[in-house]
Each structure stands twice: as structure tokens, then as C-alpha cells.
Design a protein around this nucleic acid. Structure first.
Lengths: 207, 207
DNA sequence: TGATTAGATGAAAGATGATTCAGGTTTTCA
DNA sequence: TGAAAACCTGAATCATCTTTCATCTAATCA
């Protein structure tokens, strides 16, 4: 896979007719499927196109290169998850700290578990050059949402709410990633959810 | 890069003469250097060999394939870090909980920061098919060491020490990874270290 | 309906890079 | 010192993919 400048990561053409909208959708879905079935190393543009039921040429009409395709898929997933978490943060403002933390942690875990397999497959892509840009943009969104929520909580004025939000994001994202990557069974996940809530709460109260 | 069965990941030949010991060492070093300078995508076996000052053929005498080379480098780094942490755990047994946690967290962060760049470069490799095997083996070592340490701490008998150790590992590894990947400046790292210690301590006390 | 634009095709070009192997050089040690 | 064993070399092989483009089909709309 040759190098790709960052400006080449934008979609090449926006689908106008309903036919092409469906095509692009099929390409997205096929990408995830290939990613899950064959892994990132075996993912080729031809294979994705085949599974989507179109030809490679069509794929390249909408995505300037392979990376752009992968990043589009990544961005889609991350946006989906972050929207859920942002909503949870917004609607938990002014609630007791315990409620806030619980809503935050559970919404995050729920959203990730909805597409557990997808999330796992995408961790690999997120590390690729350029993927960090998307991940970073999302991190900032999370931190803003968490900060805004925490600012409505009764915390001591000494608390550095912004850094706390940063830490909470790192804890949630990092811990869940590690957990998913161990392929732990559901009971473990239940326990993780419980411990993670208590942990974050204890952290907020201790600072 | 074609598929590689897991049994093909072992070294091909052990260097006997001092000449070849030096060669293998040079290959290890060159791998890290290329990884840092050009990134995993631009890392080719020929390039690694060139930088090591040997020919590709030589590289293939000691490593059956590219993946085996990368995994060897990964294993080396992870072993280095885990030894430091294991020592810290061993020598902190029977100490106050606060001391234990501080020793654990700080030894981990110190060890990772010693090779900050290397650690960062290796995260990418760790995700590749097969890399998880090494990561998982290390995780178990950490969890054993942490469990053994915590069992000498005055915790309520209800505490699930084994799962706590698991959580603590996930928290430390996950959070630090996320932090390193944001390319945060040193002051941030100092703050992270402080918060992480308090956080883990609060978690232990809350469970 | 005819012309214009949008969408789709897929063989083939062009690159890249992992891995081999036949043949040289150096080290060991009996 | 002279095999035998250990090491090293790097051009050539082989397989794999990404990406293009000339050409074809379908949809739109005046």
C-alpha cells in the first residue's frame, strides 16, 4: 500500500442517485465483513468490491484509495459511539455524581458492545498512520462532553475538571480496549462494567 | 506479506559464534530504528538488513519471516518492562497499600517511558495477528505478580484479588497507551502519573 | 426521445516487497 | 593446516495488490 497524503483521505465523489447511495453503503458493509472474516492483512480492495457486489473501479469512484476507505469506516463507527456517549453526558447534567458516572460508563460500554466485533477489528486500523487523527478528534469530543457534564457536579473547586475528563476518557477507552482484546466471556464483561463504574466514581471523589 | 503459521514465528537458528551474535543484535537494533524512522508500513526486510549492515539473506538465517522478526522485537521490549514491574511487585510485598500501588504504577510508567518511542512504535505491531499471543502472555505475568503482591495487603476478605489485579493491569496499560498515543508533553505525563496512582489506590480501597 | 450526466466494469499496468538459493568467506578445532 | 561447520551475500524469483482508464449501461431532463 503506497503512501497517501492526508488530503487524499477525503471521499472522491458524493453519490447522488439512489443507486449509488446503495453502492456506497454496500461497500461500507463489505469492508466491515471482510475485516471481520479475513482480518486487515487479507483485506484487499478487490475483495471488498467483490463482497459488495460491485467492481473495483466502482469502489475507486468514491474512495481515492484504500486508506480513505478504511478511515471512512473507522470514522463512522467512532462517530456512532461518541454520539451515544455525548447524549448520555448531556442528559445526565445536574444529576448526582454517581448517576453521571454510571450513565457515562454504561453508555460507552453499551455502544462499544453493540458492535463488539467491529470495534475489535477497527482497533487495528486506528493505529495505522492517519488513523490517529480521527481517534484524536473523537477524544476531544469525549473530553468536552465529559467536562461539560462534570462542571455541573458538586466537586471541590480545586478539582481540575478538564484533566479529570481526560483521565476518565483514557481509563474507559483504554480499559475496555484491553478487555475486548482478551476475548473475555460475557460474565467478565459484566464484572468489568461494575468495577469500572465504581472505579471512576472513586477517582472523582478522591481528587 | 503472506500468511505465516504460528510455528513459523520461532527463530530459525541460534547464533553460535560471537560474530553472529553481534549480527542478530544489529538486526534487532536496526528493526527498532527503522520502525521509529519510517514507521511499520515502510519497514521492509531489505531496509532493516541494510541498516543493520548485513544482507537480507543473513536476516533470513535467523528469522523465518518478517513477522517473526517483529514479534521477537516486541517480546524483547515487553519482557524488559514486565521484569521491572515484577521486581517492584516482589519487593513491595507486605508494605502499606499506598506504597504497593505507588511502586507498581511508577515502575510501569518508568519502564515504558525509558523506551517511550520504542513502546509507541511497538503498539502497532502488537495488534498484528499473532502479536496478541505475546501480549496475552505478558498480561498473565503482570496479573500474577500483582495478585501475589496484593495478597499480602490488608484487604477485606470479600475482595476478588485476582480480578482486581486484572483491572489494575488493564487500567495501567490502557491508560498509559492512550496517553502516549496523544503525544502529550512531559508535564502531562507527570500529572498522569500522580492521578494514576491515586486512582488505583482509590479503586483498591473502594472494592 | 435524444443528449447529457452519473454510475459501473474489469483487464492490465505498474509497484512493491518477501523470500530463496547457489555460491562465496570466515571460524573452529582435530 | 585443512576440512567441516558457521556465516554471509544479493540478484533473481514469485506472488500480491493497488490503482487506472477506455468502454459500456442506466438515469435524468429539456
Amino acid at each position: 500500500m503506497p503512501k497517501a497524503a492526508i488530503q487524499d483521505l477525503q471521499p472522491r465523489k458524493t453519490p447522488l442517485q439512489s443507486r449509488s447511495v446503495a453502492t456506497v453503503q454496500a461497500i461500507y458493509d463489505a469492508t466491515i465483513q471482510v475485516l471481520l472474516k479475513d482480518g486487515p492483512d487479507q483485506l484487499t480492495t478487490v475483495r471488498v468490491a467483490q463482497r459488495a457486489g460491485v467492481s473495483v473501479g466502482t469502489l475507486y469512484q468514491y474512495f481515492p484509495n484504500k486508506q480513505a476507505l478504511l478511515f471512512a469506516v473507522l470514522e463512522r463507527h467512532l462517530l456512532q459511539v461518541s454520539k451515544v456517549v455525548e447524549d448520555a453526558c448531556t442528559s445526565s447534567r445536574l444529576q448526582p455524581l454517581e448517576v453521571m458516572v454510571s450513565a457515562l460508563v454504561n453508555s460507552f460500554i453499551d455502544a462499544k458492545l453493540t458492535d463488539r466485533e467491529t470495534a475489535l477489528a477497527l482497533y487495528r486500523i486506528a493505529g495505522e498512520a492517519g488513523g490517529y487523527i480521527i481517534v484524536d478528534r473523537m477524544r476531544k469530543r469525549y473530553e468536552s462532553a465529559i467536562t461539560a457534564m462534570l462542571q455541573t457536579a458538586p466537586l471541590p473547586p480545586s478539582a481540575d475538571v478538564h484533566f479529570m475528563a481526560h483521565m476518565i476518557y483514557l481509563i474507559m477507552a483504554g480499559t475496555l480496549r484491553g478487555h475486548l482484546e482478551t476475548n473475555a466471556p460475557p460474565p467478565m464483561t459484566r464484572k468489568l462494567r461494575e468495577h469500572l463504574s465504581k472505579l471512576v466514581l472513586a477517582y472523582c471523589q478522591a481528587m
